[in-house]
Design a protein around this nucleic acid. Sequence first.
DNA 1: CAGAAATTTGACCAGTTGGAAAAAACGTTA
DNA 2: TAACGTTTTTTCCAACTGGTCAAATTTCTG
Lengths: 229, 229
Amino acid sequence: MPPIKVKMLETEGGKGGAKAAPSRKPRAQTRIQREKQEVILEAALDVFSREGFRGATIDQIAEAAGMSKPNLLYYFPRKEEIYKRLMTSMLDVWLQPLREIDSVGDPVPELRSYLRRKLEMSRDYPRQSRLFANEMLQGGPRVLDVLQGDLKALVDEKVRVIETWMTAGKIVRTDPYHLIFSIWATTQHYADFDVQVRAVLGRDRGGDGRFEDAARFLENLFLHGLLPK
Amino acid sequence: MPPIKVKMLETEGGKGGAKAAPSRKPRAQTRIQREKQEVILEAALDVFSREGFRGATIDQIAEAAGMSKPNLLYYFPRKEEIYKRLMTSMLDVWLQPLREIDSVGDPVPELRSYLRRKLEMSRDYPRQSRLFANEMLQGGPRVLDVLQGDLKALVDEKVRVIETWMTAGKIVRTDPYHLIFSIWATTQHYADFDVQVRAVLGRDRGGDGRFEDAARFLENLFLHGLLPK
DNA sequence: CAGAAATTTGACCAGTTGGAAAAAACGTTA
DNA sequence: TAACGTTTTTTCCAACTGGTCAAATTTCTG
């Protein structure tokens, strides 16, 4: 059992007394610290989102960040710290569109803009999407509590909103949970399975326009389905 | 430059002359070989689908297969061989439902049963789905050629079928590629994001019934959309 | 059963990995 | 500019990794 090391630059409370020993005031972060941490997180996002937690190495991240491994470890004393930081900040951003669904708004514009925002996230932050997907594939060991806690609560809340829309007859009566799942699935697909999407669409259609096409398609699918009226 | 090793049990042609040296006839596989390879592939599916190629270790696979590492390496001389075998056999099974779409059938039953079959695959073979998803997240380095070749050709063919349905006015005119993507996305979601689905549905609704609920929901979504007629 | 072939094991190896320690270099400020 | 805190580099380590090899064991076949 190795003794718990007290290293400088403790990013955030581990089991070592976070409050316990105010031997000296924490001393605000320097400019360099802020900058380098940013660079590291950026590089780590690249590597973790491709390789997953186990598959990624500190060396890869350090190289991508343009610094030596020990130097990187000076800012984040362990691999897991980096991962956890990325995870929480990603989850926060990632769920923003869902939070923004307005309970008093009308279903059509609300759903339409939720779809659009989610698709924009896939277009603009594909690595975050892949990071999350990677964690899910591994069974979500590091975020399970968030899923069962905050996420479930948020979804439950929005499900209730959707249910009022259904009761008011504004949209068809259907399963709101699976509706949300299907929006997540279809939009995130364009980030997570990007290679496949491009390969199938081919050179001519796989360009930047694919997100426009997807947006148009999904809007029609969700509102009208495939059968002619 | 290490000399190319000629080891027994070459599973399939490497760069060493596959045809070149018929020094002795390949000698059909023994019972033990067939059995153990099966056990190994089964164990490897477990590990690779969770950890991805890089994240998985031969030790983990060997342990899951209940044998020693050198013993495992006797059957598959390198990690990548196992992965490649899993990959190709998975792709084959995985695309079967798409192949089965009947060009002369009617769109509604065809699409409905395609949805159902894909969802059944997610329910019955979730690890295969995750294996594929993992490969996609990594940019598909080991299957890119398949995606651009066989897969694209197959999709193109089915897209043409869907287009005839649209021309005949049997379904709404929309983008057939994105239609296929959205079917893939929504169905595979239940395998790849299983943890999340269960967490959000909670104890009461996260049980075995979720696939039934999903099937019902998706069928309605794809046929009718959300707006009341 | 003997002999040959197939299978399994244990010891080993070189390269990689996450991380520690200490010293050197740098920056800031009294 | 001296002293101090911050940042970076060098060196190092033990555990893990993919893989080898020869010897031991088991299984098959005549």
